[in-house]
Every structure is written in structure tokens, then in C-alpha cells.
Design a binder for these strands. Structure first.
Lengths: 128, 128, 128, 128
DNA sequence: GTGGTCTAGACCACG
DNA sequence: GTGGTCTAGACCACG
């Protein structure tokens, strides 16, 4: 696992958790890895994972049962979807469209990249 | 001018310069604002602008004439286009497509947002 | 430690690092002093050492591991040798030869100085 | 004419003047170019040449006759030789020898570069 | 503890 | 006026 320099690592790990929720790998009520486990898995300091978990707990996405572990909260899926969709439409898209024009790329080109991406994904699934 | 806290300010200022080159507002050979001028304009410390300029000089986008100022290098447009296009295709697009699927959005929806964005832009230009 | 005023301090510190690599005191993979340590040792501001490290990182001589420190890169020895040898042959030697002739010194005289230098060095090693 | 970033330009211009004295192109009593003339020739700001002339006047190498111009002083050749020889033996040589060893070059290699340099020079003289 | 960013401001070389 | 270097020191992210 590699991390970008442009964003805090604890947020990048948080995004992985959002992803796990949104693709239904982690479902509401599931117990998620302990701080230590996830720290080992992500090759990161436990303090960093702790920060991620605190952050997500503050957003009501996960919750802690003392002495037992962390769990995906009720309603976490919908909440994640709302947060991420809002970010996407408000921040990601306008920036995307501006970049498209700056680089002189049209929407048709984008569609081709998308087709390419999807066929690559399918192949991966078949092979994997 | 406001800065995101997700990215270093000196890089955000660098991106503005890339943008000015890519939209032809700044052309090759043009003198760009002095460190002090841009520092005032962007409301940051001159050292921060210096860091931006050092960074861009390292990439061959701008260059310095001793005692006179900074200038857009020969070939800066093409180089900027290469760098930014590469980043876009390698980093931005895969992440975009992943997010699309995570959020359950299809490409047609994306197109609608794009049309919406473009008509908003046109209106701005007309009004502006 | 004293610094010449003919060259920026951050470059002089950089040259010390090149020297440490070329004489095998620092080997590839070695962790080098932290910014703060080297700042204290060299009696300069941490920002100045940071500038040196940025500079050397840009040349691929050292690299950073987040939160841990700086390390000598793979291939740093060969790269240092290439850079310094090239500088020596392209810049130092022609200037040396020009000066020799301007001062009316012949190559034999130079050899005598060299012998003298080497015997002084040996004596130092014996004594030290 | 190109200038190095490593040394102040007014000193680099001063070195050219030392060179002209040591190779007898400029002799004691000769009138040398005015500040303006040399500024144009060297493509440098007159203030910079002024600084060079002040510097050399302070060392007794040149002197000003008000309203007439600058002249090479009596004894300038010997004085230049003393200054430059001293610098050479005290500063240049030890650094040279250290670099030789760092780069793993022996004296014989140096001699070959020297022969090469001298034959290149002769060719230039013949051709020039 | 580590590095990274940023500010405020001084001083210098050069135009 | 221009950029370049350096200091002192704050604050943050990460280990």
C-alpha cells in the first residue's frame, strides 16, 4: 500500500473504510479490524489508525464498544453515500470539468477512457 | 483567495501557474509576477512563493533572469500539458471511475452534470 | 565549522554529504542525521539543512521515509561520482590549467605540491 | 559571457582583470576601459563594474585619475601574482588534491588531462 | 521523536 | 526595484 503525499494518511485510510462500506464489503453491525490489526495491515502507526477511527466515529460511521472493538454503525451506508456524493458533486466534478477543458479533452475522449477502464476491471475480475 | 488544507499552499499556487500557462493567459517568454508581487496578490509569505518558483524552475516551466525576474520557459506549454495530462490519466481518471461506481452513478449522469456545468459557464461568460 | 562566503551554506553542507558518500563513510541505505541533528552539528538553522536535503533529494542522492528520516538512496555512490567527476573535468580542470599558466607554474611544480600534500596527510594519519 | 551562480559577478569580472594583467595584455600604466564601456562589454550593470573597480583599487591594482579614467597601477603585475599565487597554494591546491582522491583519480590521469588541454590550446592558437 | 509548511523579517548581490 | 539566503520559531502530521 502506498500513500500520497498530498493528503493526510489518516484520511486516506478513512477513505478505504468508506469504500469498504459503499461496496458492501463491510456491512452495518460488522466488527471491523482492531486498531492494531489495521495498523499492521496498512503498515501505519497505530496512532494514525486511532486518528482515523476517531474521525469516523465523530461522523457516526463507526462506533466503539469498549473492550470489544469497533463496529459499523446503523445507517452508515446511507450516511457514507450522502457524504461522498455531496463531496463528489460539489468538489470533484467542477474541478474535473475545469481540468478537462484546460487539457483540451472532450467528453467523448472521457467516455473512451471509461470504456477502457471498465473492460480492464472485468478482465481483472475474471482473472482474479 | 482561499486555500484548501488538503494540499500545501505552495503547490496550490503552482497549480494556478500551470492553469495560466494552459489557458494561454501566460505565454512562453512572458515575465511573470515577481516573488513579492505574487506574495501580496496571493496573501502569502514571499518565501512560500519562492518555494513555488523553485519547484516550477526545477520542472523547467519557468526560469530566472538574475536581478530581473522570472519568465515562462520555452516549451513550458507543452511540458505543462504533458505533466498535467499524465497526472490526469494516471491518477485522476481511475479514481474518478472508481468513485462513480462506488456512488452508483452511471456515465449518463456524469454527462448531465457536464452539460449543466458548461451552460453555467456560458452564462457566466455572457454575464461577466 | 566555518563557512565560506563564496558559496551558499546549504550547498556547502551538501558538498560535505557528497564527500561522506564518496569516501564511503555513508553507505547506501544508511540513515543520515535528522534535519534537527545536522542543524545542531553544523550550527545552522534547520530550514537551511532542509534546503540541503531537498536539493539532494531532487538529485536522487537521498530520500525520505515519512516520519522516520532521510536515507542514502540506492545508486547514490555512482550518481555522486558521476556528478562530481563531470563537474571536475568540465569546470575545475580547465580553470586549474589556465591558472597554472597564468601564474607561470609548470606541471612538475604541481607534482611537488602533491607529494608534499600526500606526505602531510600520511603524517596526520599516523599521528591522528 | 556567462557567469557562475557560485561567485559574485563583480568578483568574476575582477578575475578577468587579474587575468589580463597576468598575461600582460594590460600593462602597468595602461588606461583600462571606463566603467560604462566594460559594463556594456561584459553585459553587466555599471554598478557592478563600479564595485569591481572599487575592489581592485582597494587592493592597489588599479587607480582612478579623476575625470580621465582608470589605470593599471605601478607594481600591479607583481601584486597580482602574489595575491593569486597565495590563493592558489593556500586554497585551490589542497581542495584540488582532496577532490582527486575523493574521485579516485591519480596524478597520472591529471597529467593526461593536462596534455590534452595544452594540445587543444595550441590548436586554438594556430587556428585563431 | 521525525519531517513539512509557513510566517516574519533581516541582509545581501545585482539592475 | 529584483531574487537568494538565512534565521527564529510556530504549528501540523506522523511514528
Amino acid at each position: 500500500m502506498e500513500y500520497k503525499n498530498t493528503q493526510a494518511i489518516y484520511l486516506q485510510i478513512g477513505d478505504q473504510i468508506y469504500e469498504n462500506i459503499l461496496n458492501h464489503r463491510w456491512r452495518e453491525g460488522d466488527r471491523i479490524p482492531s486498531i492494531r490489526e489495521l495498523a499492521i495491515e496498512t503498515e501505519v502507526n497505530p496512532n494514525t489508525v486511532m486518528k482515523t477511527y476517531n474521525h469516523l466515529q465523530g461522523q457516526g460511521i463507526i462506533q466503539n464498544q469498549r473492550g470489544i472493538g469497533y463496529f459499523i454503525s446503523e445507517g452508515a451506508y446511507q450516511k457514507s453515500l450522502d457524504i461522498k456524493k455531496n463531496d463528489f458533486i460539489k468538489d470533484t466534478l467542477p474541478e474535473l470539468f475545469k481540468t478537462l477543458e484546460l487539457l483540451g479533452l472532450d467528453f467523448e475522449t472521457l467516455r473512451q477512457y471509461y470504456e477502457n477502464y471498465r473492460s480492464t476491471q472485468k478482465r481483472k475480475v475474471k482473472e482474479g
